[in-house]
Amino acid sequence: MLTISEFGRRAGLSLKALRLYDVSGLLAPAEVDPANGYRRYDEEQLERARRISVLRQLDMPLATITEVLAGSDEAAMIRLDRWWAAEEATTAARRATFQYLRDRLARSGTPGLTPRPVHTRDVPATKIASIRADTDQQQLIGVIVTCTDEILTYLRAAGASATVGSWVIYHGAVTPEAEATVEVCVPFDGLVDPSGRIGIRVEPAHREAYCTITMDECVYPRIMLAYDLVYDHTRAHGLPEAGPPREVYLPDCHLLPRDQPAVDIALPVLALPVHALPVHEGTF
């Protein structure tokens, strides 16, 4: 058995951190002396402690560390890879946002989004697997990446096959200051039951107005200009909204060249009146 000081030295953790991990349930001591409250740790706990130390150096939240270390090493590796992919996506998005703002400052007066048409299309009823999560703007990309990977992994394990594309439905306004609920949706073929936070449902058939943007244009706040185009179009043509807005992603859009069409900004609307613009039919 090791004292808390010796255990902390060998694990690379401070006494303050060890006390925090004890309170949070992440790393409880092997025994606590009832007389004086001294904590003692087993040498076999060193590996877990060192893993916690490494994960904290990566700035992984305690709640995520708990998930990573909860199961087998194989499960931990999957969860670690999923978290790291989300972190890299978030970093890339922040870098792109910085570059967008810098370009806007350098080219004051230029449009932030080149003009483009807004089309309409009919979307058939679609069976989807989805996860709802609350997030703010800073964590949004990571949430999308993590949830999409979780759904795809589950579908593969269940013997189902994801079909073309995926989308995210915004059930509230996601901002840098406030969280809202988003729903990450993956269409699929096959028979799959709900599991944990993954729900199975049918997205109703609907008509939607949309415009297409590139991955470069998908950066916040630039992406909001695309939403403005769609909302301005629906108002100008008297099209009542019929559901929350969504971003529809082409398959492997993150692998496409940054200046190529990759994402549709879409808004469900009621059926177009006869005098409206021609309908561009399409599916995902």
Rank of each mutant, 00 (worst) to 15 (best):
G142A: 12
V143A: 13
V145I: 15
V145A: 14
T148I: 02
T148S: 13
D149V: 13
E150T: 15
I151T: 08
L152T: 15
R156Y: 01
R156V: 13
A158V: 07
A160T: 07
T163I: 03
G165N: 08
S166M: 07
V168F: 03
G172Y: 06
A173I: 10
A173G: 01
V174D: 12
V174W: 09
T175S: 14
P176L: 11
P176K: 12
P176D: 13
E177Y: 03
A178E: 14
E183H: 11
E183C: 07
C185F: 02
V186L: 01
F188W: 10
D189N: 09
D189V: 03
D189W: 00
G190K: 05
G190P: 04
V192M: 05
D193M: 11
P194C: 05
G196D: 09
G196T: 07
R197I: 10
G199E: 12
R201W: 03
R201L: 09
E203C: 07
E203H: 09
R207T: 12
R207W: 02
C211H: 02
C211E: 04
C211I: 01
T214H: 02
T214E: 01
D216V: 00
E217P: 01
V219S: 15
P221Y: 10
M224W: 00
L225A: 04
A226H: 07
D228E: 14
L229M: 06
V230T: 06
P240C: 06
E241K: 09
R246K: 13
E247R: 02
